[in-house]
Design a protein around this nucleic acid. Structure first.
Lengths: 241, 241
DNA sequence: CGATGAGTTGAGAGCAATCAAGATGGGTGG
DNA sequence: CCACCCATCTTGATTGCTCTCAACTCATCG
């Protein structure tokens, strides 16, 4: 496990990567690690979060819930992603660890002070937030207008693009995607039922677009067809282009 | 029409409201007005936008489009809202004037310079962007999990909360909402067909929750029932609370 | 007074949700 | 090492919500 910034596995990806040496010293002084087990809730919607954090390892989800229990995922946090909102203590959605998760937490006050003093850090925050906003708006299109098949294909494309360290091309130029989520969670992500997700997996498999290696690994046999199925133009570039 | 900042109708609401006198002078030097007629496209998706801007008056929408013509609204811009993204010229969605619109445009470079030099302005930008992100995530829940009835009721609640100058309470404690959008556009907002929106209008009317005054004015007769129909808890406060 | 755009309403079809069994597979304990 | 168990996943049958297509109303405007 990492204990200090120089050893940090996300040192050059996380929000703190823009900080200079003195800023980093101040942040390091205000930071501490937290570990969560798979399945554990990190914050409940409406609760106080007394820190902001970078995800060091693992996967977590952010979800909104309706009173009758319907839920919709609204964010997927992976290594180097940022969690929490400066200047706001209450979190409007529930954050849950999907795998074991390690967070690098910063006490609010000191983090906000460093941010106020560091134009680079606050510019980085803004840029990341705007990226998230753009991603969220793509997601609106997915939820509002895409069919089940398009939704699932889109998820595969999104995961392929996000794969840590770039997508894995297996021999034959095929693309391998490790699903960090169960069918259930994918359904939550896509605004579908878990059965429908399962049916789309089968459908894409029948069509020869993907192949499965266990339940958590998808091998894309025909990326162009996957893109078409997702409803995207191929103009915006696949992970292999 | 306004020509200089002191006369600006959104002087105290827009992004520039946090600027001090010298900053404002620099911004004023870099700014110019643009007018658009109802229906006119302000930027096409993928095009260059050589300015960022505040909406001075009118309503505009941001929309994503699929190749076959399906569209999903991803943003609704009203007076004092901000348009455009610093440090990125291309806009990923189409922005369209719904009514006649006046924009207060800032040339990119000078705006970015003022932003870099003004912690207050960049903090304001971050805060607004985070608010938009939260709103967008609520919207994900709406699109992913709500029924047509809940969607339309939610839209009314959202519009009620946003009404410029606070919601209008007509005699009898009733709440009046002016719809800035046609059925068509509401459908685009809610991920529904226009017919389904129309049916939900009729349904809420039959149930005695709303009344119509022309096609563009909704009078809410039973706000509590509207909240219930929207799927929200009443905990988060209505416009009359 | 027809023409036009916006809105309403109805009938029918289609897609995804729900309900209900099975299948699979990794982990545990005998 | 094998048998069992539980969570996860798949598949089938049916229901139901929303879309689509189509006709009609209404207000506005040349």
């Amino acid at each position: 496990m990492h204990g200090s910034c120089p050893d940090c596995p996300v040192r050059h990806q996380a929000i703190c990567s823009t900080c200079n040496a003195p800023e980093l010293r101040r942040l390091e002084h205000a930071r501490y690690d937290r570990r969560y087990e798979a399945g554990q809730v990190i914050v409940w919607a409406g609760d106080r979060l007394d820190f902001v954090a970078s995800v060091v390892s693992g996967v977590a989800t952010m979800s909104h819930t309706l009173e009758d229990g319907r839920t919709q995922m609204v964010g997927l946090l992976q290594a180097s992603d940022f969690l929490g909102r400066p200047h706001r203590e209450r979190t409007p959605y529930t954050v849950t660890a999907v795998t074991d998760v390690v967070l690098c937490c910063f006490r609010r006050k000191p983090f906000e002070e460093v941010m106020a003093a560091s134009p680079a850090l606050s510019a980085q925050m803004l840029d990341r937030t705007l990226d998230e906003l753009d991603a969220s708006r793509e997601w609106l299109l997915l939820l509002g207008r895409k069919s089940a098949r398009e939704k699932f294909a889109s998820l595969l494309v999104i995961l392929a693009r996000r794969e840590v360290g770039g997508p894995q091309a297996s021999p034959g130029g095929e693309l391998q995607i490790d699903l960090p989520l169960t069918r259930d969670m994918m359904a939550d992500y896509l605004g579908l039922s878990l059965e429908t997700v399962s049916r789309q997996v089968s459908a894409l498999r029948r069509d020869g677009i993907i192949r499965l290696n266990g339940n958590r690994t998808v091998i894309v046999q025909d990326y162009a067809a996957l893109l078409t199925a997702s409803g995207e133009t191929d103009a915006d570039g696949g992970p292999l282009s």
